[in-house]
Design a protein around this nucleic acid. Structure first.
Lengths: 189, 189
DNA sequence: CAGTACAGACCAAATGGTCGGCTACTACTG
DNA sequence: CAGTAGTAGCCGACCATTTGGTCTGTACTG
């Protein structure tokens, strides 16, 4: 029954991307006007696809979380069958997205900005639980997973603090974390 | 010349604390009205101390950064003269503030929320540089510092994702990081 | 008296959201 | 295949409310 499925989906994507960009730049307080203009539609057009501001931001949060998960899944090396392959992909995706300055959606920062929107916290919590169980099945020692993933998250925060001004430390962190997924350094039994 | 210095300082603190609370809860988009009400003053009263919204948020960011630094300095164990004493204090302060749910100011999350405010990025970057040099003088291997501090930062982000629902993992992370500051596990040369 | 901490009324601008209308495509009808 | 009714995408005008900020006044203090 949905007759113009194609266009609808495309507009939604356009708006979502525009929202991601503007929220990343100006925080979750951006006005619908700004988002709509960035997306190249009218405010009414935007509101046709997302019934309210909160609905839009909620959808954005969901989209961020889903996209990130998909990216990590796609980044898993098919030839890699050793323990920690998922954690390796996780680290890679986080640092790759940090690499290019112009990255549209900075997963962590964006979701952090959105965390005050009504339904978003629940989404983030559910997502966190999924990652936790996925990591448990990845074969690495839990302590190791804890340190590595938290450090990756922290590094992603650091771009905000350092303003992306420290690419060498970033690269070093990436290498350290990847090596830790390969069992180097037995800081835990 | 400032006749009522005492009251001025106190009101500023009250407003700053109120701002910290509301921004943490509702994001950097909070209205002056809400902050003023939370602080128990009129909006005009608030604007008497902070000439504009941006000035207030800027002052808030500065205050957050300074308070955190002071807390870490105060948390350094005077009896601890081994390498990594500053990093240990850093970890302790971060996790202690995460401990109590009702913590007024969640340093990292708050500054993240404020990062879109005009002058704040510069403050955060300067602060990051100071920490870096302080850590360099702390005697631990740079790689170790990198991993530990980033992981601590990431853990602080995690409260947002997990909704503080995982205190056991938090405690575990804290212990792991502290033990890592004591040179256990030589994951790096 | 001078100056400062505040409050209340007020204002222009911006905001989220509604409404009616136009267009273009789909699907049915003959 | 032509015509047409229906419907979804989208826009511009519009509205009530909220917003950041100013201005005027007042109480208090040194």
């Amino acid at each position: 029954m949905p007759p113009r499925e194609r266009d609808t989906a495309r507009t939604r994507r356009t708006v979502l991307d525009a929202a991601a960009r503007t929220v990343a730049k100006q925080g979750a307080g951006v006005s619908l006007d700004v988002i709509a203009r960035e997306a190249g539609v009218s405010k009414s057009g935007l509101l046709h696809h997302f019934r309210s501001r909160d609905q839009l931001l909620l959808a954005l949060a969901r989209d961020q979380v889903d996209t990130f998960a998909a990216e990590v899944r796609a980044a898993v090396d098919p030839a890699d069958h050793a323990a920690g392959r998922l954690v390796r992909a996780y680290v890679k995706v986080i640092f790759d997205s940090l690499g290019d300055e112009t990255m549209i959606s900075e997963h962590l920062l964006l979701t952090a900005a959105l965390s005050t929107v009504p339904g978003v916290a629940e989404i983030l919590q559910a997502d966190a639980r999924e990652w936790e169980s996925a990591f448990t099945a990845d074969g690495l020692h839990p302590d190791r997973v804890l340190i590595i993933t938290k450090a990756a998250d922290g590094a992603s925060l650091a771009t905000l603090y350092e303003g992306g001004s420290n690419p060498v430390a970033l690269e070093r962190t990436r290498e350290l974390l990847l090596s830790m997924t390969r069992g180097e350094g037995s800081f835990t039994g």
